[in-house]
Nucleic acid binder design. Sequence first.
RNA 1: GCGGGCGUAGUUCAAUGGUAGAACGUCAGCCUUCCAAGCUGAAUAUGCCGGUUCGAUCCCGGUCGCCCGCUCCA
Length: 550
Amino acid sequence: MTQIKDMKDIVALCKRRGFIFAASDIYGGINGFWDFGPLGTELKNNLRDRWWKDMVLCPPIGPDGTPVEIVGVDSAIIQNPKCWEASGHVGGFNDPMVDCKESKKRYRADHLIVYLPKSYDPEMDGALLFPCFDKDETPEDVEKRLKKLNLRSDISQYEVISFVDIKTWAYTNPNDDYGISHPKNYCEQYKIDELVRIPDSHKILRDRIIGPDTKTVGTLGEPRMFNMMFHSYAGAAAGEENKVYLRPETCAGIFLNFKNVVDSSRVKVPFGIAQIGKAFRNEVTPRNFIFRSREFEQMELEWFCEEKDVPMWFDFWVEQRKRFWESVGVPLNKLHFLDVPKEELAHYSSRTIDFEYQFPFSGEGYDELEGIAHRGNFDLTQHQEFSKTKLEYMDPQDPKNRYLPHVIEPSSGLTRGVLALLSEAYTVDDSRPSGVYMNFTPEMAPKKAAILPLTAKDDHVPLAQKLYLELREEFVVDLDIKQNIGKRYARQDEIGTPYCFTIDNDTINDQTVTVRERNTMAQERIHMDKVKEFLHEKMRAGASALKKAA
RNA sequence: GCGGGCGUAGUUCAAUGGUAGAACGUCAGCCUUCCAAGCUGAAUAUGCCGGUUCGAUCCCGGUCGCCCGCUCCA
């Protein structure tokens, strides 16, 4: 039977059962932000804790047969703003964009160039027009289009100016011999004395520009800055001098503490530093539930190693990360491993592999869940330069050998991981009363078990309470007394509780309870004293499957 | 941010220029010895702001949010 998983249904279930709510729901929500409810919080914590355990508490066995060395940090969300200049985010995340009313396209304003005729001849040029092109356009294509637009087709007769500089140019060079020639003519034509007197002179110029994909003038709007980074002001006075940024990724905090960790933690290359935390991006279009939100959580490892060992460690981490996702309930056959093509790699990366999952909204495609990148020693180099602090690592065997280690970065989205777990677990089953159940692994399930007295009368309730109090010391469990047993099973199915322990009359006589398994709905009886052990064994199943694969 | 579609209980849907109904869910009670049974009862909705109108959930504008496409992206 083909299961149709609809994102809408998953979102509805998440709200109905308390996994995830729209942030500020009672105020009508706020785009790009989500709140985790009681069950969502448990689920997220389970995934987070498991990652931390696999990375920091019980890191994997390395190629040499001994466990690799990884330590954790938890850095501030706000750091010295210079840090984001070093990382390239202040430059790279602030792109001026411009929209075209006609072609409905959006362009990077700094990628557009405007062609200005070096001299204006009313006979030849007619109305003064400034055709605009993408900077990567070939001269041949430019000339072709100029001809089509009935303009001079000889490129040498034009000056070229960046679209973003038009405002500056119009205001600052009004009397420039070269700069004024066009606007001056334009002004004469419209009986305007001086360009500088017109408050919106740049706008008038802009009104004569022909967008890259149109034939008409004035369809390009004002360029606007897209600040991908959220900012705030540290201190009471709000001014540029104390402007700070909310981190757009967690990894910077690791690099900033590289030296502190090396100096304080007796780690030796190769080693890793791990961090889990919130990051913030002012996404243009938050979409697809919690997949692209403006506040999200990342789990990142920076693995520091010698350059010569990069290929070995890269493969090692790809393998480890595959096992991780498999063991938390995302089968490898649901993942797509994309060796990012050279031309799409970040400038500092020589190799990146994206783990992509087919989310319900992905259609035939896949969307990124985790990325493993070789970042070279770009980050440490940058921070060393910008901070003027030596970050070189000293080889303990050879104190003369100082170097900036290379980095392999397995970076996964915790928020996206939760969405993958939800999507993967959501299982339509018309044969059962709930119509759907959440097939979480026992380890990831927000509730490990429910304790259900078969009836709310007689002696079932006290026995159930006793079992509940015992179990809750070690597991997240529910005690549910009210309503008929079928309703309660159904409710547990919908929240993905793998086991229900039911107390009935036999329990009073022989201290056995029925275990009802979520996926099969099969039942067996076990002794009350064995329940803890039973659950422990099931919880370990994920971890042992991981070991088996190793 | 642009274009298109949409906004009614917790969920899924009805209805109307004269103040809203259902199903399921939730809660309470009865019943009940294993899968949302049955019976009784209860609570809960026209996203928000403004305009037109005697009167707006319905028409108009704005705003917020959701979905699709563009763009962007962990």
